[in-house]
């Protein structure tokens, strides 16, 4: 599966050929180095390990730096891409050109944190009436049945922590691939705040 590590820059709009204004998310691709190769003989599966974003030297531990020995400087993000469709060798540097002939991608990121949230925001519960004597506003409501089963089933929708999840948005159209800026533009929004790390992969379902 073809893919790269990128950084979310933010959103803007571009005009397409028909004059339609398209909302796009800009993803910056800094040089992705092939740090290691996984092979069937040694690992039991095929994969390419890509690294991106330089690290401050004092933050690198010796065991972590060992992975990058003889390849490149230690990188902040390390991601394994299974069955990389392109022939790559250890030490190769991949750039945004990888997406030149690809029209749809999936983008994986970490969503923005929302803190502790109630059932309405977290799961879309309907909530109760605000006025006319109603005493049921944003509460949870019933959570279980009666003396049987006399317990709340696991995974019941309740208030709790929301956000900071791994989220994948599928089938985003690639609007433009800019070589000079090393930037990829996809139509629509992607998860996470700006300057967060995202993984861009060739769309699975297209």
């Amino acid at each position: 599966m073809l893919g790269l590590i990128g950084k979310k820059v933010g959103m803007t709009q571009v005009f397409d050929a028909n004059g339609r204004l398209t909302p796009v998310t800009v993803i910056k691709i800094e040089g992705n180095v092939v740090v290691a190769e996984r092979t069937v003989e040694s690992n039991g599966y095929e994969a390419a390990v890509l690294g991106s974003f330089d690290m401050k030297k004092n933050r690198v531990t010796k065991p972590y730096a060992g992975q990058f020995k003889d390849v490149c400087d230690p990188k902040k993000s390390l991601v394994e891409f299974r069955d990389f469709e392109q022939d790559v060798k250890k030490g190769d540097v991949l750039d945004v050109n990888l997406f030149k002939d690809i029209s749809f991608v999936d983008v994986t990121g970490t969503s923005k944190g929302k803190g502790f949230q109630g059932g309405i925001k977290r799961f879309g519960h309907a909530g109760g009436r605000a006025t006319h004597g109603s005493k049921f506003h944003r509460d949870l409501g019933g959570t279980a049945m009666c003396s049987t089963p006399s317990k709340v089933f696991k995974g019941h929708h309740m208030a709790g922590h929301m956000g900071v999840d791994k989220v994948t948005v599928q089938n985003l159209r690639v609007v433009r691939v800019d070589e000079t800026l090393q930037v990829l533009m996809v139509k629509g929004a992607i998860p996470g705040p700006t300057s967060s790390t995202v993984i861009v992969k060739k769309a699975v379902k297209k």
Partner: peptide, 12 residues
Amino acid sequence: MNIINAIEQEVV
């Protein structure tokens, strides 16, 4: 932000 400005200014 600078990258976004660059993209927009190109069209402008």
